[in-house]
Design a protein around this nucleic acid. Structure first.
Lengths: 252, 252
DNA sequence: AGATATGTGTTAAAATTTTACACGAGAAGG
DNA sequence: CCTTCTCGTGTAAAATTTTAACACATATCT
């Protein structure tokens, strides 16, 4: 009973990186805060977590703190992204083959995905490592030049790769979105890659947290009508939602 | 004044690993606790420390904490591998282009390499991430199916990649070695990849810690005469060394 | 000089963590 | 079968730490 709960906490902490006592309380409504506190204490004794004021963080997360460039981004709008990732994960059927990008939202998705029989392609290094943790996943990494800021790869040669491979679903995210300029990102070859991915996939699911709305990045890789499902958070503006649903795009 | 003090705190924290506010107060008697508190807050913002109840700890320290209980697995023959990696790193010239594999020794090499202007190809996910930390490296990740046990990729399509790319040096390691069976590893496609790499490179440097000697894995990818330099540790048997040097292979 | 920003100290308020003690379930032992 | 002990847990008060608010001095800029 106790041990079970502790392991569950450890797992959660591994997923989310950081948890407050409040969040833990929500997750475990049947035990008191004091008990959770004691669990955290034990985990700290075992050297598996670090207790900080208000809660605890996983050792992994702390190590990331030192790896600045990529990980700074991962701590903003975390909650929204996790929710989006959970929604997206619920859409994935067993046996599906899909592409996911290397962004931070994809990272959360990788953590949330249940360990089903899936074939997953990605261009994200960290995402690939995360996916490799699951026993039943068949993970394929796209090669190419490594972009240091987001730890993903892109290369013009990717096309050759895709010639022999098929996937049903593309789950991607964008750095910026406006209705006029569509979904955009900061790198030309990344945009090219994502366009290619879109064209290969039977359906495109876009994950977009609302903080991206109104921003514009140099390279557009998809317009509103190019996607099939938009997965976003509760702050998504109602009028924008109209624009999507009017074109038969599911917004969730 | 302020910055100075903050840096000093960071340095102290780096040395001692962990400091309470009381200890800090002793070290800096001329400022108030509140000021030190604010300094710690700033350092936390900068991602350089972790604030915990009562004080703060350095990121390093946290990593150490995690090192105790369950990371012991990865620490087998660590010292030897680091020494080998250091030797290898000393052989790399500025401006060089090279391939390195995704093994643990390569991981150490990635850490030891100075931040020179290098073009590096690798099939290791973790290695690629490590390499991406250095500003001056141009890192290219080889794509393919991700092998979960060692987090590296291999694919028959790699050949297409290599058609357009060139590198002078291949720095690779093996899972096993005997004079009769040569250098071997546990995966067919990995062996194929390494053979291909060897053939593309002008020179092949093999990193082999002595614990691998006498072991045999299913797939041989290089024989004694295929390599140019063997980088190993002090426990390397003298008679074996003979065999290499007799064929004009540098052993170091 | 006057206005604005920055760094610091002091104190009170807020929040979190620790401590202490009580209670019930289950195991051990007579 | 009952007693005793341990273990996990809950509750509430106590202790500690952190945050917030304000005041003041010094530095900076125009």
């Amino acid at each position: 009973m106790k041990r079970e709960r502790i392991e569950e906490i450890a797992e959660l902490l591994d997923k989310r990186g950081k948890l407050t006592l409040e969040q833990l309380d929500e997750q475990f409504p049947n035990v008191s805060q004091m008990t959770l506190r004691r669990d955290l204490f034990q985990l700290e004794q075992e050297g598996r977590i670090i207790r900080v004021r208000g809660g605890a963080m996983s050792v992994k997360e702390v190590q990331k703190v030192s790896g600045e460039p990529y990980t700074k981004k991962t701590t903003i709008h975390t909650d929204e992204k996790i929710k989006i990732a959970q929604k997206a994960a619920s859409l994935i059927d067993d046996g599906c083959s899909l592409f996911m990008d290397g962004g931070t939202t994809a990272m959360y998705l990788a953590k949330e995905l249940p360990d089903k029989n899936l074939h997953i392609f990605t261009n994200g290094l960290a995402v690939a490592i995360e996916l490799a943790q699951k026993k039943n996943f068949h993970v394929t990494m796209l090669g190419g030049q490594v972009m240091k800021d987001n730890l993903s790869t892109a290369s013009p040669v990717a096309k050759a790769y895709f010639d022999n491979t098929n996937f049903e679903l593309a789950i991607i995210s964008a750095s910026a979105f406006t209705p006029e300029n569509g979904f955009s990102c900061g790198s030309q070859i990344e945009a090219d890659l994502l366009k290619l991915v879109r064209s290969k996939a039977k359906a495109t699911y876009m994950m977009l947290d609302s903080s991206k709305i109104g921003k514009i990045m140099p390279y557009t890789f998809a317009r509103v009508e190019d996607i099939d499902v938009l997965i976003t958070d509760d702050n998504f503006p109602a009028d924008l939602k109209e624009e999507f649903t009017a074109r038969n795009i599911v917004v969730m």
